[in-house]
Design a protein around this nucleic acid. Structure first.
Lengths: 245, 245
DNA sequence: TTGAGAACAACTCAATCTGAGAACAACTTA
DNA sequence: TAAGTTGTTCTCAGATTGAGTTGTTCTCAA
């Protein structure tokens, strides 16, 4: 049998039916707190429960594109603002019993977003909000989403150590203090301002100076801060290490 | 409609057919070189090409269990020796065109194995061998397996930095020099013996002494080396860093 | 207008860690 | 027995880190 014949005689229905979905753990920082995008499910199973935005992968759609589409639908955001969102694959969850309907394998993704507008509930979701991760309703999360969120948060904390992705939570131009606030928020611990400043400026390619400064000092005083933009490095060497874990 | 009715009326066939497979990037060290487990495909597509071991996920099988089963089938190994193999999820590959037959989403896994016997070709595979990664036939790899292998190798290199998984390439008891050889093989660069020794013994929980030493010195001379076994740490703090990347 | 407080940015300094090499004893093979 | 190899420990200069200080610029409120 040659390859031509083989493909012609191939019937996908011979194989066990598995549904493939993408889910998104979307993180942003609002008012100094780490927030997570959640929707409230309108339909069974888990109707009324909180869940990650997500849905079925379309037949001709790449996984990452599917995750980006779901994120766009749930946030109501178009291409421009979504373009500044970092999106990466987080992991795949395929426990045979994770969905009561059938076998569903879900490829979870992780998104780092600058402060975005409030999400727009669409037909799939009764409600959609940015929720502080400190207020997660662990008991009321659908499927295995509590575990996916845990994994996403741990991945986010780790990624700040060795990548410059913290800048993705900020505007295109930012101060060192704003960058430090991202680290403190995600890691949940205060950092030494002086040492952080020294470290950020010494790691090659982390940030580059714009030459400009903020228009005003801090809300409660202090001089105008210098402005930086993301550098060209994709990995930080040496990394910014959390001292304890 | 309550949840009961909903589940009863649910037809999986309403959803687009997607096949879900698991693949395994299995690494081991033989004769001082990093080797990868490959099979030669017997059936189309890509008949005659090299490919990663893998196959369809069974209906009631966890993803990791599926990967472990495929690895067992391909290596012909039973539970005992396979129990010492480290297996983790690597990433999911779901490009719509990656398989000419139909939409196939594959969850790739990464395995670290101590030196295993030669694999046994089964019905699926015309041939199965441990191949040195320096001799990879990039042009003759099936599907997107060249990229999966690249990702697996990079993950392996990174994992040695911050986890104690290098010990998984070794026997239950090993010397510091054998451990250093793992790092040198995977990273592809020589390391300073004295500094490596100091570092390994100073990282809490990386290795613990057995109190014993090897029966003989090295093959070409030198004193007997002390023996160690893996410690209890699951992460290395501080990490062993590659100096350049 | 001025004083108090805040915070950006730069600096200091001791403690620790790292890279490179040397020393030395214990072993091998020839 | 001699020559060479290797496991292990030590030394030391340079770099990095943690903690704190200083000086200046700014905001807010009296």
């Amino acid at each position: 049998m040659n390859e031509q014949d083989f493909l012609a005689g191939y019937d996908p229905r011979d194989y066990p039916a598995v549904a493939v979905t993408v889910d998104v753990v979307a993180l942003t920082i609002r008012e100094g707190a780490l927030h997570l995008l959640l929707i409230r499910r309108a339909a069974p199973p888990y109707a009324g429960h909180w869940a990650l935005p997500g849905g079925f992968v379309r037949p001709d759609e790449d996984l990452l594109a599917g995750a980006r589409r779901e994120l766009a639908e749930e946030t109501g955001l178009g291409g421009e603002r979504l373009g500044r969102v970092h999106l990466e694959q987080l992991g795949t969850y395929g426990d045979p019993d994770r969905d009561p309907r059938m076998r569903v394998v879900s490829i979870a993704h992780l998104a780092f977003a600058p402060d975005l507008p409030d999400p727009v509930a669409d037909t799939d979701a009764a409600d959609a909000i940015w929720l502080p991760v400190t207020a997660l309703p662990n008991r009321q999360l659908a499927f295995d989403h509590a575990r996916i969120i845990d994994d996403g948060l741990e991945r986010a904390r780790a990624k700040l150590e060795y990548t410059p992705l913290a800048t993705r939570f900020l505007a295109p131009e930012f101060t060192v203090t704003e960058l430090r606030a991202v680290y403190e928020t995600v890691w949940g611990e205060p950092l030494h301002a002086g040492n952080f400043h020294r470290k950020v400026l010494s790691v090659p390619g982390f940030v580059e100076s714009t030459g400009a400064s903020t228009e005003r000092g801090g809300a409660r005083g202090g001089p105008r801060a210098k402005l930086y933009r993301p550098g060209t490095a994709r990995l930080l060497h040496p990394a910014l290490l959390r001292t304890l874990r």
